Amino acid sequence: MRAPALSAADAPARGPLRHALQALWAIVARELFKFARQYGRLVSALVRPVLWLAVFAAGFRNVFGVAIVPPYETYITYDEYIAPGLIGMVMLFNGMQSSLAMVYDREMGMMRLLLTAPLPRAWVLFAKLAATAVLSLLQAVAFVAIAALLGTTLPLWGAHTPQVLAAAVGGALMLGALGLLLSVHVRQLENFAGAMNFVIFPMYFISTALYPLWKLEEAGARWVFLAAQGNPFTYAVEWLRFALYGQDPGWAPWIVCGTALACFTLACWGYDPQRGFGQLAKRG
């Protein structure tokens, strides 16, 4: 039986939306299929945090005690404390890898084809951001499974599970948007390694991923304490950490979502050929 034809009034309303959703799915599916063929990418994404958990955290398991401070209601081991930070590490590195893929696609011409598609440029960039977030979440799930096999279990299930999902999605979008913004400034693949060193490592080490802020202040590292408070990655980790225990994360969700929106807006501005950073870089 043939489907009823769209009326002339319905076609303009349904056409653009359907076209936009098809483009979103096509870009996300392309990134998923490409990732499925790159086994080394998944291994390289998980080796680093697994080593931290299996070697570093195990060695200091009972050396660094974490006091009973929110969101914890009892003493915990060090590997339990850094697990949310390592999940953040997985999403951080994938966000930066996505910016590397953007630079590569731009040089090889694939990104130029996408940007000339009959769609709003912001929607194309949002589709790339959504694909990055999906890959980040899949890699985070794989890390959580490996961590459970190593004996580090996280309280994922319960009434707070929607909070955990919201925190994970928010962190993945923020770090993906940061990678999108970074791809505006990195014009050549050769410059990417330096950019990563100036973005990834400061963001990760100057945060609460490895140690609580009160320990930094107690140890006299005042400048590290202040820098960590201004680091958006700190709030992504803290949002996830508090969500895992069903506690109120305070301002963390607002800071993470605000940073994601700001980075995405600046990235859209930068990819506009008529203005923004892209035009400035072209002139330089």
Rank of each mutant, 00 (worst) to 15 (best):
S98M: 15
E107T: 03
A142K: 09
L119Q: 06
F126A: 12
M108N: 14
L129S: 12
A131C: 03
W123F: 14
M111W: 05
Y104H: 10
Y104I: 07
S98I: 11
F126R: 06
L119G: 03
R112V: 08
S136T: 06
K128F: 00
M102P: 01
L114R: 15
P118S: 06
K128D: 09
W123S: 13
D105V: 04
L114Y: 08
K128P: 04
L115E: 11
G95C: 10
A133M: 10
T116Q: 15
A122H: 08
L138G: 10
L138F: 13
L138H: 07
Y104C: 00
F93P: 01
A131L: 01
P118I: 00
P120I: 08
V141S: 11
A122D: 01
V90G: 10
M91Y: 00
P120A: 02
F126D: 06
R112M: 03
L114I: 00
G109F: 06
L100T: 13
V90N: 07
A127S: 15
S98Y: 12
V124S: 11
G95L: 07
Q97F: 01
L114G: 11
R106L: 13
M111H: 07
A130Q: 04
G95F: 02
L114W: 09
D105G: 15
Q97C: 01
M91N: 06
E107L: 08
W123A: 13
S99F: 14
V124W: 04
M108H: 14
R121G: 10
W123Y: 10
F126P: 04
Y104N: 09
L129M: 14
V90F: 12
S98A: 15
V134C: 13
N94S: 04
L137Y: 03
L125T: 03
A130L: 07
Q139F: 06
M111G: 13
S98T: 11
L115Q: 11
A101F: 11
M91K: 04
R121E: 02
A127E: 07
P120T: 07
M96G: 08
L125A: 05
V141E: 10
M110D: 07
R121F: 06
V141T: 12
A130P: 07
K128S: 02
G109I: 06
M110W: 08
M102L: 15
Y104G: 00
Q139W: 05
A142T: 06
M91D: 07
A101E: 10
V134Q: 09
M102A: 08
A117C: 03
G109D: 03
A130D: 01
L138C: 08
L125R: 02
G95N: 01
A133W: 00
L138S: 02
L129D: 02
S136L: 06
A140D: 00
S98K: 04
M110N: 13
A133C: 09
A101G: 00
A101T: 05
L129W: 01
Q97M: 10
P120R: 15
G109M: 05
L125Y: 00
T116M: 15
M110A: 09
K128G: 07
T116A: 14
L92P: 11
L115V: 02
L137G: 07
A117E: 14
M108F: 08
T116G: 08
F143A: 01
Q139I: 02
D105F: 08
A117M: 15
M102F: 05
M91Q: 14
